[in-house]
Design a protein around this nucleic acid. Structure first.
Length: 492
RNA sequence: GAGCCAUUAGCUCAGCUGGUAGAGCACCGGACUUUUAAUCCGGGUGUCGAAGGUUCGAAUCCUUCAUGGCUCACCA
């Protein structure tokens, strides 16, 4: 038998006593293998057939509750599909096996074999004939009645959260099925899933501060990517035509209920498309995904009822802002815009540029009304350095953002494929950086060189996956939809 | 980064204007062969987040720190 006498910390003596007691009954507390024939859900689905034939079934899972009755014991066992009751009788198991079962505690993992029946109270139950202890649980589980609510413990020890809270498991099941149906949708339309560098020499593709790291062998500073955009568009130059990536981005910014330093984005690019192509695709894809994963077209988010049935509203950013604030973001001068904004109570300081003010107007006057899915179109070029300008107005980018439930969910534009214009945009960004804007783009010569070989006119779309999952699971915090959100490490 | 709030048993929480720390569940011992928040009998298992201070006396008042939550800022 194995030696478990080394100390693991905590109440070592109690843990040791339990292990010794189990070993004294001739059983190792670990090391068994066990292959269940059914899941809990299988038993419920096939109850009729199984109980009629008196067929032997086996299931494996974690003991979540025990009700001991002397020579009989009821135990609730939980696997990934649900919970089911065991009925263990001394005269069926025999003396020694029953005595071993008496050692079982809440939290232990067991495998059982027996027949399915219904108790007097009508509860679906397995009448246990044989059982095996698969792994013992040395620490007490959170209390059964109140469960585990402490958010810090829930995030730090997510395994306990998953054991105790079924609705948490459901959130991550839904997350998985959303990603699957998104991939299915894109595969059907001949999009190729690709992976591009997480570690980049020049972080680009978004206006954000990056994390720095260092490669020892090359002796160079590297950045964790803030977006995959510039690499995905190199693939468009390379003729892949339809590519997407669902993966992590890293931004070195504050943490809040809607921001985690690493978060998941879908980015996709379609050659011979533009932002209008992306709008159609975005709407169709999300309607499809929402329907496939929730079965509904209405979603409830934080008390709002959101009607997701198509077609989705399309509005212009300028009209919306003009209507709400009286400011014309394309025709008012810098000075008059700033004055008007100030008179509305927006504290614009001297260094605020147009983009910043527009963003503020959008957030304060437009976004709070965007409950149902709405595409807000035509953004200023100066806050869209990678987007193509409209033919009519060089100050307006062919770009939209998608808002659902007052949250920004998507962002898309007609990609700028003119290397000369792109270089000018980079140089403008460089000026912003020199005046202290740490989020401004760096000049990426290598990307410009790629554009010189010719990139087809292309539409690009980004969708914030975590935010989308928040909407679909009515989660008020992004941490509820990320298995291991970033927390400050514990020092104790 | 700033403000507000929280931190007491394994879990959920009481503990008033300062007077030697409590409940339910969990846990430990005993009884119980269809229970299901099983029941019945017996048992409190604690560095009151940490360190200072005030006081005869601090879980309680003050200061600092730590961690978390919410709001704001930055951003998606």
């Amino acid at each position: 038998m194995n030696d478990y006498s080394n100390q693991l910390g905590g109440e070592g003596e109690e843990k040791q006593a339990r292990i010794r007691s189990i070993q004294a009954k001739g059983k190792d507390p670990y090391n068994s293998s066990f292959r269940p024939t059914h899941s809990v859900d299988d038993l419920a689905q096939n109850e009729g057939e199984l109980s009629e034939n008196g067929k032997k079934v086996s299931i494996a899972g974690r003991v979540m509750a025990l009700r001991r009755h002397g020579k009989a014991i009821f135990a609730d066992v939980q696997d990934r599909t649900g919970r089911i009751q065991m009925y263990v009788k001394k005269d069926v198991l025999g003396e020694s096996s029953f005595n071993l079962f008496k050692e079982i505690d809440v939290g232990d993992l067991v495998g059982v074999e027996g027949k399915v029946f219904r108790t007097r109270a009508g509860e679906l139950t397995v009448a246990v004939e044989h059982f095996d202890l698969l792994s013992i649980c040395l620490n007490p589980l959170p209390e059964k009645w109140h469960g585990l609510k402490d958010v810090e413990v829930r995030y730090r020890r997510r395994y306990l959260d998953l054991i105790m809270n079924e609705e948490v498991r459901k959130v991550f099941l839904l997350r998985s099925s959303v990603l699957k149906s998104m991939r299915d949708y894109l595969e059907e339309r001949n999009f190729l899933e690709v992976e591009t560098p997480m570690m980049q020499v020049i972080p680009g593709g978004a206006l954000a501060r990056p994390f720095k790291t260092y490669h020892n062998a090359l002796g160079i500073e590297l950045f964790l990517r803030v977006a995959p955009e510039l690499f995905l568009k190199r693939l468009i130059v390379g003729g892949m035509e339809r590519v997407y990536e669902i993966n992590r981005n890293f931004r070195n910014e504050g943490i809040s209920v809607r921001h985690n330093p690493e978060f998941t984005m879908l980015e996709l690019y379609q050659a011979y498309g533009d932002y209008l192509t992306m709008m159609d695709l975005c709407e169709d894809m999300l309607v499809n995904v929402i329907d496939k994963t929730t079965g509904k077209t209405n979603i409830t988010y934080q008390g709002m009822t959101i009607d997701c049935s198509p077609p989705w509203k399309r509005v212009s950013l300028r009209d919306e802002i003009a209507e709400a604030s009286g400011i014309d973001i394309f025709n008012d001068s810098d000075v008059s815009m700033k004055e008007k904004a100030r008179s509305l109570g927006i504290p614009c300081s001297e260094e605020w540029n147009r983009g910043k003010i527009i963003n503020e107007l959008l957030e304060n006057y437009v976004q709070p009304h965007l409950v149902n899915p709405t595409f807000v179109m035509d953004y200023p070029v100066d806050i869209s350095p990678l987007a193509r300008a409209t033919k009519k107005n060089p100050l307006i980018a062919e770009r939209f953002e998608l808002f659902i439930g007052k949250e920004e969910i998507g962002n898309a534009y007609s990609e700028l494929n003119d290397p000369f214009e792109q270089k000018n945009r980079f140089l403008d960004q460089l000026k912003k950086r020199e005046t202290g804007d740490e989020e401004a783009h760096l000049v990426d010569e290598d990307y410009l060189e790629a554009l010189e070989f010719g990139m087809p006119p292309t539409g690009g779309l980004g969708v914030g996956i975590d935010r989308l999952i928040m909407l679909l699971t009515d989660s008020s915090s992004i941490r509820e939809v990320i298995l291991f959100p970033l927390l400050r490490p514990r020092l104790d």
